[in-house]
């Protein structure tokens, strides 16, 4: 046997994973409205909180301490949140259904595709959806004058990174779920993340001990990264955020890989 015959960790360089994305495109081609709906979630938050509440609040301290309008402050946090929510939704409910009920992956694994392709394909799909939403949100942010820097275009790849991190970890968590009620745990995690990750007020509002806790959680890194880019306040801290999210995503994919192997290739 030549070395080509061996199953590498990325069969065919991960290209086969694209077939799974193609499958999902096929599914959503008919129900594209479902996809569009995902765009409205952050938009509604932005209108309700950014403008409604923002009119009462006025200015808050930005990332560099200088005051910025509340809408400018909260918009990037809402983008980060919706990137998280979209990724979690795709990688948990949808994946659980395909894994436990529809046996979609069992059928896929009878073809040349392997568990690595399944893991990559599903995370990639969650990522692609998240990217579409981020692009839509970017357009709205710019139109509403809530972007303060040309660096705002980088919020799209940043939102992708947030999506990747949460999709991978969400799918990893899903492989441990046994029944639908287990999914309540997801809200137990994501709701506090949404509320307390310096989303609605600066992290300086917390006492030191709590601040350490918040900085340890993932959405904070997404929020601060995207806020830094859209307000044009960049520094080494942003690089830290990128590394945190990338490591989180890769760790998630590694866990998914191992778990699918155990669950599907018994």
């Amino acid at each position: 046997m030549t070395s080509l015959a061996r199953i590498g960790p990325w069969p065919l360089g991960g290209l086969r994973a694209a077939r799974l994305v193609e499958r999902n495109v096929m599914v959503y081609r008919r129900t594209w409205l479902v996809i569009v709906s995902g765009f409205f979630e952050p938009l509604f938050y932005l209108l309700g909180i950014g403008f409604g509440l923002g009119a009462l609040i006025g200015d808050v301290p930005g990332p560099d301490g200088r005051p910025i309008p509340y809408g400018v402050f909260v918009a990037p946090a809402l983008l980060a949140t919706s990137a998280m929510n979209g990724a979690i939704y795709d990688s948990t409910f949808n994946v659980f259904f395909k894994l436990r009920y529809a046996k979609t992956y069992d059928a896929v694994l009878s073809t040349p595709l392997g568990v690595g392709d399944v893991a990559l394909g599903e995370v990639a799909w969650a990522l692609i959806r998240g990217t579409l939403y981020a692009l839509g949100f970017l357009v709205v942010t710019v139109l509403l004058g809530l972007a303060r820097s040309p660096l705002v275009v980088l919020t799209v790849p940043a939102a992708m990174l947030v999506g990747f991190a949460f999709a991978a970890v969400g799918m990893a968590a899903t492989t441990f779920m046994r029944r639908w009620t287990d999914f309540d745990f997801i809200f137990v995690v994501t709701l506090p993340l949404f509320l307390f990750s310096a989303t609605f007020y600066p992290i300086t509002a917390y006492p030191d001990a709590l601040r350490v806790l918040v900085v340890a959680t993932p959405l904070y890194h997404g929020v601060d990264l995207i806020r830094g880019l859209s307000t044009g306040v960049v520094g080494p801290a942003l690089l830290g955020h990128v590394v945190y999210l990338a490591v989180m995503g890769l760790a998630g994919v590694a866990v998914v890989w191992r778990r699918l192997d155990r669950l599907l290739l018994k």
Partner: peptide, 28 residues
């Protein structure tokens, strides 16, 4: 003629499988 432990994808490329439990894609 191949070993499933090392040539899984190459073997599966030439197999057809009808599993005991239907695994058709209900979303398609």
């Amino acid at each position: 003629g191949l070993d499933p432990a090392t040539d899984g994808p190459r073997i599966r490329a030439r197999l057809g499988v009808v599993p005991q439990q239907d695994s058709l894609d209900m979303e398609l």
